[in-house]
């Protein structure tokens, strides 16, 4: 499988805290990698650095051979880097459908001059975006919620909205930050099968999760992080079996 995301020597410190210490990591198209580690290991920070939300001190990031280093977050997203947030970060002032539309890949209406001068083009893009959003909602089992305010939707479905929103941009690489925390039942199964399907479509996926069963069932590979460093990489089984890692994980 070709390399999708390639991270080299990614480092970042906040004052005295090292959140990323020369991280090297490759994600391959169609593969699901589980990122494991105790709280504070730097997993979310790693996503922030890769998605361009936080500037690294050093290191490079490339997506499908294209250098993203130094690029703003919105440009990385347009080049196919999708992510979700541990704390959801949905748009409370928008309905579910409109939350998705913010992520639409082509949206000429976000330029004021285009909106005013080329209204026809904007109108067509709006219709296409809406069509795509409805498809994604269907795919994620959210079609019944399209016109609800996001705050009124059950928590598990809110998590799904976060994933659905990221799919609007047709990502080539998807970073999922604790998609299962607090999720059970139907939403759990939907997220699980959705991630599988996305990988089967050739998207590279990296998922941070504390739910061991979820990681073991889903991931082709696991990466163990601690104190901003990648300590081990291998099958999820082998990481779980490593006494040294479980001790770090549970902080004994």
């Amino acid at each position: 499988m070709p390399v999708s995301l390639e991270v080299r020597g990614l480092s970042k410190r906040f004052g005295g805290i090292v959140v990323a210490d020369a991280i090297d990591l490759e994600l391959r198209a169609g593969r699901i990698v589980g990122l494991i580690g105790p709280n504070g290991a730097g997993k979310t920070s790693f996503f922030n650095l890769v998605s361009g939300v936080v500037r690294p001190d050093s290191g490079t990031v490339a997506l499908e051979g294209r250098d993203l280093t130094g690029m703003k977050a919105h440009r990385r997203a347009r080049l196919g880097l999708g992510r979700t947030w541990q704390s959801l970060r949905l748009f409370p002032s928008l309905s579910v459908l409109y939350n998705l539309l913010i992520g639409a890949r082509h949206y000429p209406g976000e330029r004021l001059a285009t909106l005013i001068l080329e209204h026809g083009r904007v109108h067509r893009a709006e219709k296409a975006g809406r069509q795509r959003a409805l498809e994604v909602l269907q795919r994620t089992g959210l079609d019944g919620f399209a016109h609800r305010e996001v705050g009124s939707v059950p928590f598990g479905q809110q998590k799904l909205i976060g994933v659905a929103r990221a799919l609007m941009n047709e990502p080539r690489c998807l970073l999922l930050d604790e998609p299962m925390a607090g999720v059970e039942g139907q939403a759990y199964r939907t997220i699980q099968s959705l991630v599988r399907t996305l990988a089967a479509e050739g998207i590279s996926v990296c998922v941070v999760e504390h739910n061991v069963a979820f990681i073991r069932d889903l991931c082709d590979e696991g990466v163990f992080m601690f104190a901003g460093r990648v300590l081990a990489r291998g099958t999820v089984e082998s990481l779980i079996a490593d006494r040294r890692l479980t001790e770090l994980y549970f902080g004994t």
Binding site: A77, F91, I102
Partner: peptide, 15 residues
């Protein structure tokens, strides 16, 4: 409206 709600999430969606 989305930008006012959450600028980081907004940017990470390509806006």
């Amino acid at each position: 409206s989305a930008m006012r709600d959450d600028e980081l999430a907004f940017a990470a969606l390509g806006r």
